Simulated scan of single mutants.
Amino acid sequence: MHEQSLHQVPRLVVLISGGGSNLQALIDAISMGSIDATIELVISNKVDALGLARAHKAGIENRVINHLEFGSREAFDKELTHAIDDKQPDLVVLAGFMRIFTPQFTHHYHGRMLNIHPSLLPQFKGINTHERAIEAEVAEHGASVHFVSSELDGGPMVLQASVSVLSLDSPKVLAARVLVQEHLIYPIAIKWFCEGRLKLQNNAVLMDGQLLPEQGIQFQS
């Protein structure tokens, strides 16, 4: 992010593919005044994403850019970039957006795009994280907020929250417990960014000017 790029009230564009519960957590945080920002646009790559209804109910402009209508990943990312840049956002928020980006796209938004992933990265990158955590018999699982890079789920870490993996957990039950933490930590990280406290500089994460550890801040609820 350029040093002086934040608008007086930071502008956000949110990308979704599904239910949009993290979008709702962000909408709620803004409406309650805990985050001083505006969501200028919500974009889904799926026509039937339930998160679109959440955006509509909140009076937020929303649209579908269906990846199936494009002949290449590059063509889709180019259209997505045009739609995002039209709103001149300070931050692009990935909230369950299930697409792998081209390096050109991630480079364009370097330092101003955040993602939340349902695992304690670098563990369990990709999909089916809860099933894999149970199969691996790990003691702790959780969620991670990170800046987006060209490496899948591999960008610099901002914030993590952990939950214990219990012996009787099913993937669905574990996922629900992790989702509670997601709804807590994602608005916090976005708030920090909007306040100018959180920055990516030389591919290192700074919080209040101080370098964060490789695994980011460990959230305690």
Score class of each variant (00 low, 15 high):
Asn45Gln: 11
His117Val: 04
Gly142Glu: 03
Ile190Ser: 02
Gln210Phe: 07
Leu212Asp: 02
Asp77Lys: 06
Ala161Phe: 03
Lys191Cys: 13
Phe70Pro: 10
Gly20Trp: 07
Lys125Thr: 12
Leu121Asn: 00
Ser44Tyr: 09
Ile39Phe: 08
Ser150Met: 04
Ala204Phe: 01
Leu68Ile: 05
Arg54Met: 08
Arg197Val: 05
Ser31Ala: 15
Lys46Gln: 12
Asp153Cys: 07
Val180Trp: 01
Ile188Ala: 12
Ile188Thr: 12
Val158Gly: 02
Val178Lys: 00
Val148Arg: 00
Arg197Ala: 13
Glu140Phe: 15
Tyr109Asn: 07
Leu41Ser: 01
Gly18Trp: 12
Ala189Arg: 04
Thr129Met: 03
Glu137Asp: 14
Lys46Thr: 11
Ile188Arg: 12
Gln4Trp: 07
Asn128Ser: 12
Asn115Phe: 01
Ser167Met: 12
Ile116Met: 04
Phe124Ser: 08
Leu200Arg: 01
Met32Ala: 15
Val173Cys: 03
Gly20Arg: 05
Gln88Ile: 13
Ile217Ala: 00
Ile60Asp: 02
Ala83Asn: 09
Ala136Gln: 11
Gly19Asn: 14
Ser150Arg: 02
Asp28Gly: 12
Arg73Thr: 11
Asp77Cys: 11
Leu91Lys: 06
Asp36Trp: 00
Lys199Ile: 01
Ile30Arg: 08
Ser119His: 05
Val205Phe: 01
Gly71Ser: 11
